[in-house]
Design a protein around this nucleic acid. Structure first.
Lengths: 112, 112
DNA sequence: GTCAGACGCAACCACTGGTTGCATGTCTGG
DNA sequence: CCAGACATGCAACCAGTGGTTGCGTCTGAC
């Protein structure tokens, strides 16, 4: 019952900058390294690296178009990541509830 | 509507090893750096470092007891982290749904 | 008192997010 | 057609961090 997640996906979406990039790509309907870097506090090269890892795990897909390279979010893959995210949350939530119940049971046992 | 999360908390719970540690601490009802390292593929020192960061963000609390230092999970703080986790998931989930609706609207508009 | 167990500290290594600098490739206006 | 502007890609470099080993110290038990 361990919390096993696709660590590549998790770490990809675990970086704050990459989360903001996904956010921007979603609200703008795609973009390039340059357009993204203009809306972020990091350089174009940093953004390009992030786009590389996001592309490798399949969260975005980049297609060359003339002198620029346009990236768009792969919604299906992002949905998978979000699902895993909430599954981790659910697992811990359940365990927390279980622990709480055990704790209460022990208290009841002690005071009897 | 940006996805702002307590980055310290997020990054604390974002590390796979730390997630497994929290998991072990919960199921065992606490433990020391040594007992945890016996159940993990890393050294005691690595575990100690992780316990340090988890302690700093308040997810665990360590109390010296004789020659050992016992750590326990702060359930309230973990609950907060879990809540943030699922809030991020919910945010993206909502945005994905919105995007999907917009896409469908565009398709309907195009074919009319 | 001694010895084993648990800890903390420091040095070191590998990886990664970030930067700067530079070279390459593609439009576009004259 | 050519020059300049714009976007990219590549390489070197820096800082932070997860991980290791090694060592010193403190506590408990025989």
């Amino acid at each position: 019952m361990s919390v096993t997640v696709d660590d590549d996906l998790w770490s990809a979406v675990g970086d704050p900058t990459r989360r903001r990039m996904l956010d921007l790509l979603l609200s703008d309907g795609g973009g390039t390294a340059t357009t993204l870097s203009e809306q972020l506090p990091v350089t174009r090269q940093a953004v390009a690296k992030h786009l590389g890892v996001l592309d490798r795990v399949g969260l975005v897909h980049g297609t060359p178009s003339g002198r620029e390279r346009r990236y768009e979010v792969d919604e299906a893959q992002l949905a998978r990541a979000v699902a895993q995210l909430s599954s981790v949350g659910a697992t811990w939530d359940a365990r927390l509830r279980r622990i709480k119940q055990i704790a209460e049971a022990i208290q009841r046992g002690q005071q009897s």
